[in-house]
Design a protein around this nucleic acid. Sequence first.
DNA 1: GCCAACGTTGGC
DNA 2: GCCAACGTTGGC
Length: 151
Amino acid sequence: MKCEPDAYTIDDLARDRRASWEGVRNYQARNFMRDDMQKGDGVLFYASNADPSGVTGVAVIERAGYPDHFAWTPRHKYFDPRSAPDAPVWYMVDVAFVERFPETIALATLKATRGLEAMMVTQKGSRLSVQPVTKPEFDTVVRLGRRRSGS
DNA sequence: GCCAACGTTGGC
DNA sequence: GCCAACGTTGGC
């Protein structure tokens, strides 16, 4: 799951311990949250538009997809008149903090790592803010994150 | 700040 | 339903 550091970081999540992931306004990303993400699923926290951009830590799905009520909150920045309580258009999940990597695993590192060639985020033009990750990919990235800590 | 890639909108 | 115009994302 991607987020720009200006908006939210893994450190923010470490402090808050839990956060709702509202504001996703892309249908494909919504479908992943609404249909596929289950409580207990691992999450790679990705800082986009960062220096460097990359995976900064791990979270876990704390609550599976549910309607993004900010979409029907007038004057909220995520308001969308197409969505309504009886016919929600947008969905969100809740995530909980798991761990923060000592160093960002930069996108360039992900691209250079064997086993991540097919990972969505390493593909050109990969803009989706919520992307599926396979178990082997997840494990490979977590291993990278921990290796850099010397642990 | 540039700009390629991509998604969405809307005229026809 | 096509597709040009436009807006956004996000790496660099």
